[in-house]
Design a protein around this nucleic acid. Sequence first.
DNA 1: TTGAAAGCGCTAACAA
DNA 2: TTGTTAGCGCTTTCAA
Lengths: 340, 340
Amino acid sequence: MESKPTIEDVAKLADVSIATVSRVINNQGGVKRTTEEKVFKAIYDLGYIRSAVARSMKRKETNTIGIIVPDIKNPFFPHVVAGIEQKAREKGYYTILSSTNESPKVEEEIVQIFIERGVDGVILTTANENGEHIKLLQEQGIPVVAVDRAIKRFEIDTVLVDNINGSYQAVQHLIMQGHQKIAIICGPQDTTPGLERFLGYKKALAEFNFSIDHRYVIQGDFMETSGYRAAQELFSLEDRPTAIFSSNNLMTIGCVKALMDLDWKLGEEVSFIGFDDVDIATFVRPKLSVVSRPMTAIGEIAFQLLHERIEFKGDLPKRQYLLSPELKIRESSFLNKISL
Amino acid sequence: MESKPTIEDVAKLADVSIATVSRVINNQGGVKRTTEEKVFKAIYDLGYIRSAVARSMKRKETNTIGIIVPDIKNPFFPHVVAGIEQKAREKGYYTILSSTNESPKVEEEIVQIFIERGVDGVILTTANENGEHIKLLQEQGIPVVAVDRAIKRFEIDTVLVDNINGSYQAVQHLIMQGHQKIAIICGPQDTTPGLERFLGYKKALAEFNFSIDHRYVIQGDFMETSGYRAAQELFSLEDRPTAIFSSNNLMTIGCVKALMDLDWKLGEEVSFIGFDDVDIATFVRPKLSVVSRPMTAIGEIAFQLLHERIEFKGDLPKRQYLLSPELKIRESSFLNKISL
DNA sequence: TTGAAAGCGCTAACAA
DNA sequence: TTGTTAGCGCTTTCAA
């Protein structure tokens, strides 16, 4: 394997200067047609591919954006990432993706790496909303967009979903069905989605003058097992709730699994609504009602915001997108033969 | 925002040469303790972060590996990616991930971009097993590992699952249950998994001297809708099959959805086994029997192979890993009240 | 329309 | 133990 051809090899073969080759490969014009053809031929003959590394070195931009997600295995994120990637590719940007597994420490490392690599921007769903690590990015002048979870201490563009309203609608719907004992499986209260979905629950209860029964408020961690355990705990109560609201997709899966294992009959003994749609929703009988979010659109908007910041270097005010989730009423939220 | 500090700024502040700073940040030793401390202090005071771009430029390596998958939204891939990323991070490598949406053209572009960026290696599940684009990578001396789908025209390390045996076992199990009319929903026959899973089906039938009934062989494209349509088609047959084998996870979802919509009773009128486990499997009644693969392990092994090639530049023979899938017999493959 | 040349920030060979 | 210096491959002035 001879070493890779460089711009200089091309220049030599085409018998022009490297400046001319550079003009051609960057499509800058001002090159005579015949010269251009010579250069193209040389590039082709040599199989020359320009080094993005050298280019970035000189231009101080990499056309790369970094994406940080807490858990790539949670299907929500691949959908968001697909939206980001799609739009990014259209604009000539490429993505580096890393998953933190919800570890703030890993997240800090990733941020460091991204800076070393000179990413032009970062889109992240942070594992630590109160973290200081975003400061690093700001110091370097690297634009950041937060998705799904807010960044507390810094002025950062944000794409969120109206979690409060989403869970409010869900719980309200449950109340309208006549439920009075409605449980919630919460997400971590130090995350925006975890907290806000709980707030929406409280808001709905308050509106109907229901007081909060702490036996029905179970803490989870957005992972499947915590949903499973929450359902077990609820089932073990003497006075069981007649409806359950789950704060995310994975916990929904765990919860429904537990319901089945416990033979706690969905739609007969207990109603259910979950935040975020899941594959299993339409396979379980009765079908699961859910609060659903436009995942791909979230990614697209996030890239859009980031791109604007990368391009106009000027001052832009902090922008916050708040998308509306949609309550998809299927079957699990209805009364059926439930005796309340 | 003043421009970012460079190694030179650090050197000046610490009152040493840039070579010394370089030694410190690369942990090369041979620097006096006190000098080292001065350098660290300067780095800290300046908030210096070394440029990976400049470093890569000089070292001719990026510590980056590119990952290409056909569909990031198919849950199989995030699991594989998680395995790759985990091992990669341990070794100080980082990943660029791109999804081709099964488009060979997009895949070629991505390969080109990866080369421009100087990735140290590539792990891919190709959208075009007969493509010439891998040649580009080989010409550049960039190691490649193929996952899940083979690369035909080149000598490439490969991590596959024993698809033939997996579907063979599944179909054999169906036959043992007394089924004689077993349908298959095929994947694209120009992909290794699509073809091999069909071969396993044929092998099982042949072993029991069953001949292939072409009405029961439906072509799909690994996407959900094709699974749905396949089930519809089978249902419309005068002489319906009594068992269905689906060649992948997404088609399983589509197929089972159709079964429900058609009220074609799973476990009573028709048995089912799918290739790859899916979330819905244990939520549907009867629970779905599936052929399951060690997804994270596949990713880990792929990185392992790639890493070996990156490190020992020498000649290594082509290696092929063949992992064994496991038949998870749950409920949908049993007879129950099926009248054959 | 073209070319010469100055770096971009770093590593590593060599010298001291 | 430390410093000097020559590039890595490219873009981009400036001059011709």
